[in-house]
Design a protein around this nucleic acid. Structure first.
Lengths: 125, 125
DNA sequence: TTATATGCAAATGATTTGCGTAGTC
DNA sequence: GACTACGCAAATCATTTGCATATAA
């Protein structure tokens, strides 16, 4: 069911290169639909990520993050300011191949997050 | 300050190969110190991981996990039951080298988590 | 029309914090 | 004795859920 709310959430997410939290998405959606509720945002983010239209990122920090880029890619997170960016890097075929059988698990995928200090914070430090 | 509480938490954590949550550690500690509080457990886990004596894992799921193994290693998480295990696998020198400069960040480390289905759950499925 | 989604508010679950007392160095 | 940590309970923060109403197909 493509409701107005769901469409707006999806559109707003697609405008961004970044990885907003649920409440950031709520603020963006609210500019277009002032009566939308935070609960609706959470519900739709869940549904959209279940059906693969967006990606839910469970990276470090207390809040989950979301992005509209579904292709496999990696992230860097800044230790200092917490900002998160995509990593431009050829796919790590080494890992992709190495994980076929790990600990006798059936491996479905992996999550790779880099941790470091972003250029901005490097300057300030 | 090595209090009785802090020592017990550390000892209990070192007994395990697994990656317990704060409340699991609380239960373990409580068998030896019945009056210990959950707040104390959280405070000590924070302090111990800050000074590098244990490791705080911010993997998927809602709860943080902790382990006493400080050397760099990776994890597998089961999609179905949520259990988490260490991965026995030679260090991925490919990544270790590849990450020296990513997106102009100063890279300090990375977090790698595999996702799959554990042997137990494979049987049940 | 009928299932599904919404807004609102209250509930939940993990973690953190304030405060007065107790323990460690 | 001074500083740090403790136990307890209340507070906080992100997220989820119940319910009566509204909306999309």
């Amino acid at each position: 069911m493509m409701t107005r709310q769901r469409r707006v959430i999806l559109e707003e997410l697609r405008k961004l290169e970044s990885h907003p939290t649920a409440d950031e998405i709520y603020e963006m959606a609210r500019r277009r639909l002032p009566r939308i509720s935070l609960g609706t945002v959470y519900r739709n983010l869940e549904i959209l990520s279940e059906c693969g239209m967006i990606r839910k990122l469970e990276l470090g920090g207390t809040q989950k993050r979301f992005d509209s880029m579904v292709r496999n890619h990696y992230h860097v997170r800044c230790l200092r300011c917490g900002c998160i960016e995509d990593v431009s890097m050829e796919p790590l075929t080494t890992i992709e191949n190495a994980i076929r059988r790990v600990n006798d698990y059936e491996i479905i995928g992996f999550r790779l997050e880099f941790i470091g200090v972003c250029p901005q914070c490097k300057k300030e430090a």
